[in-house]
Design a protein around this nucleic acid. Structure first.
Length: 140
DNA sequence: GCCAACGTTGGC
DNA sequence: GCCAACGTTGGC
C-alpha cells in the first residue's frame, strides 16, 4: 500500500464537502507530475487531504476507491482522475507550520515543492502526520 | 533546442 | 495584495 497527499483550496472543494458527498472524483489536475502521481495510486491507498491557501492544514484521510480514468471535466485525453472517499477526519488538523517544524518531515514535497498538488508520502511520513493529528486509521 | 514572456500556484 | 517559484508557450 502507498500513501499520498493531495491539496485543494477549500473554497474550491473541501473536506466537509467530501464527507457530504461520501465519494468524489478528484478532477482538475493539470500538471504532469501531479497526474503521474495520480496514475500510480492503487485501490485501497490512503490519501491525506490538505487545505491549501485557507487553513493550510491536513483535514482528513481518504481512500482510493477507483484507479485512474479519463477526467470527465476535460476533453483532453492527457488528464485523468481517481475516485476518493473519506475514511477518517483528523482529530486535530495538522497545520503546515506543524509539518514544517517536525523533524522527519522536512523533505516532503508539500514543503520542498509547494506547487505540487498530488504527492507521495513515505509510510514513515504518513505515520508522523497522523500522530501529529492525534489520529489513527486501520492500525496505523 | 534555447530562452523570454507569460500564467498559475500558494505562502506570506 | 504581493511576489517567488515554477510550468508552459511560442518565436527564433
Amino acid at each position: 500500500m502507498n500513501f499520498w497527499l493531495v491539496k485543494q483550496e477549500p473554497s474550491k472543494y473541501n473536506w466537509e464537502q467530501l464527507v457530504r458527498d461520501k465519494e468524489t472524483y478528484w478532477d482538475g489536475v493539470r500538471n504532469y507530475q501531479a497526474r503521474n502521481n495520480l496514475q500510480k495510486m492503487k485501490r485501497g491507498d490512503l490519501v491525506l487531504f490538505y487545505h491549501s491557501v485557507v487553513g493550510k492544514e491536513v483535514k482528513g484521510i481518504c481512500e482510493v476507491t477507483k484507479e485512474f480514468y479519463p477526467d470527465p471535466s476535460s476533453d483532453d485525453p492527457r488528464w485523468c482522475v481517481v475516485d476518493l472517499k473519506p475514511v477518517q477526519a483528523m482529530r486535530s488538523p495538522v497545520t503546515l507550520d506543524g509539518i514544517k517544524s517536525h523533524p522527519g518531515l522536512e523533505d516532503i514535497a508539500l514543503i520542498r515543492q509547494s506547487r505540487l498538488s498530488v504527492m507521495p508520502l513515505s509510510k514513515k511520513e504518513f505515520k508522523i502526520i497522523l500522530k501529529l493529528g492525534d489520529t489513527s486509521v486501520r492500525g496505523i
